[in-house]
């Protein structure tokens, strides 16, 4: 929604100030890094080469990481990791909202199912990696499964909690205006819970992101995690740092994207 507190603040300076400060601070950080890295004698450069050393490879058109048929460009790696996280989170989001709604249909299902979810939810997504590899082998399914497991249970519990938080008058009013059970679900309960559940999805993105990278470092053979591990296996600090930076930038971009989706589609408070 648009910001409608007009008045004393100058909205331009208010929105620009953090951006300018952020850019200056990042520029300073990189500047110091480059300054230290300019001296090749410095042993730190061996482990932490500055961006001017590891970033230019992005411009090389035939830059590939990996061996033979398994090699991939860095863009393919970014794509494959993003694909896994976003697909896993989408399935988990839709699944948990649906499952949460179904659970809250009956008091008994709440009483019996919620304890199980409460027990499974705290399992760190990373802990599912070995099991997923055994079941699905080295494939996209493994990664998607891990993301799903990392997000699904928490979001289902959140959906049930959000449904309980809906003001009773919302439901009475809907019935009073002629909504049958199905219409109440569709037009009141679902829109009322979506913003809260989506906020939690956004907060859980980091967990899902970590889980996929860990899976790519340990079991899978492609994606951003694999780029970093290949760098380690080849004692190539440039490749390690390239992977790390791209993980950081991509993660930041996805977080902003989720924030944008929230502001555009799930902005209301119940």
């Amino acid at each position: 929604m648009s910001n409608d507190n007009s008045g004393w603040y100058n909205p331009i300076s208010r929105s620009l100030l953090p951006l300018v400060c952020g850019l200056v601070s990042i520029a300073l950080f990189i500047g110091v890094w480059e300054g230290i890295g300019a001296n090749p004698e410095n042993p730190i450069v061996q482990v932490l080469p500055p961006p001017s050393k590891f970033l230019p490879v992005l411009l090389e058109s035939n830059f590939r990481i990996g061996l033979g048929s398994q090699s991939a460009t860095i863009y393919e790696s970014v794509f494959i990791t993003l694909f896994r996280v976003i697909l896993g989170m989408t399935i988990a989001f839709l699944g948990s909202v649906t499952f949460g709604l179904l659970i809250s249909l009956s008091q008994w299902s709440e009483l019996f199912i919620l304890p199980i979810l409460g027990l499974v939810a705290p399992i760190a997504p990373i802990a599912w990696i070995p099991l997923a590899l055994v079941i699905f082998g080295v494939s996209n399914l493994t990664a998607i499964f891990i993301v799903f497991m990392g997000v699904f249970f928490t979001l289902t519990i959140a959906t049930v909690a959000e449904i309980k938080k809906i003001p009773l008058n919302f439901l009475i009013t809907a019935e009073n205006l002629g909504a049958d059970n199905f219409a109440r679900w569709r037009f009141v309960i679902i829109p009322a819970v979506l913003p809260g559940v989506f906020t939690l999805l956004r907060l859980n993105f980091i967990a899902a992101w970590m889980a996929v990278l860990a899976a790519e470092m340990t079991g899978l053979r492609d994606g951003l995690g694999t780029v970093v591990m290949t760098g380690r296996n080849l004692f190539n600090s440039n490749l390690i740092l390239l992977g790390i930076s791209i993980i950081g930038i991509t993660g930041f971009a996805v977080d902003r994207l989720l924030l944008l989706i929230q502001k555009k589609f799930f902005w209301w408070k119940v």
Binding site: P167, N169, F170, I172, T173, A174, L177, G178, A179, D180, A183, R184, F187, V188, P191, A192, W268, K269, V270
Partner: peptide, 22 residues
Amino acid sequence: ENTLYPWLTVEQNISFGFKVRG
């Protein structure tokens, strides 16, 4: 307390009774 649906505009709120009946 107001029971207007925050995700609907004034007009959508007022026509809610027609929307839910398809």
